[in-house]
Design a protein around this nucleic acid. Sequence first.
DNA 1: TCCATAACGGGACTCCTGTTCCATTAGCTG
DNA 2: CAGCTAATGGAACAGGAGTCCCGTTATGGA
Lengths: 209, 209
Amino acid sequence: MELTEAGPEAGPGTARPGGRTARVRAAVLRAAGDVLAEQGFAHLDLADIARRAEVGKTTVYRRWGSVTGLVTDLLLDMAQQSVPRTETGSLLGDLKANTGLVRRTLADPRQGALFKAVIAAATCDPKAAEALHGFYAVRVEEWAPCVEQAAARGEVPGGTDAHEVIRAASAPLYYRLLTTALPLDEAAADRAATAAAAAARAGAYVREA
Amino acid sequence: MELTEAGPEAGPGTARPGGRTARVRAAVLRAAGDVLAEQGFAHLDLADIARRAEVGKTTVYRRWGSVTGLVTDLLLDMAQQSVPRTETGSLLGDLKANTGLVRRTLADPRQGALFKAVIAAATCDPKAAEALHGFYAVRVEEWAPCVEQAAARGEVPGGTDAHEVIRAASAPLYYRLLTTALPLDEAAADRAATAAAAAARAGAYVREA
DNA sequence: TCCATAACGGGACTCCTGTTCCATTAGCTG
DNA sequence: CAGCTAATGGAACAGGAGTCCCGTTATGGA
């Protein structure tokens, strides 16, 4: 997995990223996503993906090296497509927009399977973990302003940790997805947003001195 | 993986569970835990575990069959040792006791690695997922009464979903463990408890009609 | 347009995971 | 305590994941 490797001599796919290289990457990531959605992380076999993508097995091993490496790149690719944040004028509205987006993503067969896979990969592979942490750091950063605006409006106390509020809103959805068999319905998303907003208003996320 | 297989003819280890069979299971689970703590889920190789446990490779494959099967059994074994719930007299105190326990468990190198592994296994294996869901269902059930007592004391509105409150208290810790590189410190645990208590008091977990 | 070479692709090869077979050990039951 | 058989363990085997080698393709620059 040389994808995130710094330094002058990086792995294949970096010196000539255009044309064929890009096509191969697209085909492989697409095939990997298909397998994930259809059969899950356990059945992710690089040889099979090479076959589906109509790409040489050697190429897949050379560029991605392992299942976790491939999943990591899949995440990096997905991180490109950022969904812009919507503003509703109230903290609760903004948080509901956020949890609704998270819920729809996790409930979607393809995206949901991908996220499960990435989380699984992150638990065993440091590079995957780093990519995942980076992904969420960006997302949280993107949504944090809505809490700061709420603080400016006086909806929540000053000194409220905006990042922590955003994380608190998503957390129950991930917990539900991973540790229960309960459905990820809209009620759960709204409840998560409502709870985060209520806790924030009560000053639960005010930074300690 | 015949562990949870119902019916008259179950897998090996069920007809003569005493003596040697129990010793083999203990040795294998212990070795598996060691490897998990030392090297993580990715390096969990059944042949290696058999070697460490000084047990025949065939035996491990016959009784557990796969990495996820072994991890699942490890979880079932761990589910036996239930830590009794403490009662402090206030919802916030009880929730802090809960999140403190969760935090210590996840921060412990051995237990934390094990939980990460089980979560990873659950994302790719239905049996592992079922075992994990059962585990958390029991834990949540164990702690739910503290919310009901709080309702009886008038700390939270009637009709508050006790299970949901307990889940809400743990969720941020798991989210933090999996999606960030932030430390699982006591402040995070207390904050999670405080937020869940505040949201519950505000009626965020009242069941809809 | 042409060249140097980055990147790909096929095939052979290796090693290791997981299976099968059967002899041996040791629980359970009468 | 004796026998039946569940369960284990060693050894040989099969299949597939991952590697290596090298010829082929096509990209980016001169």
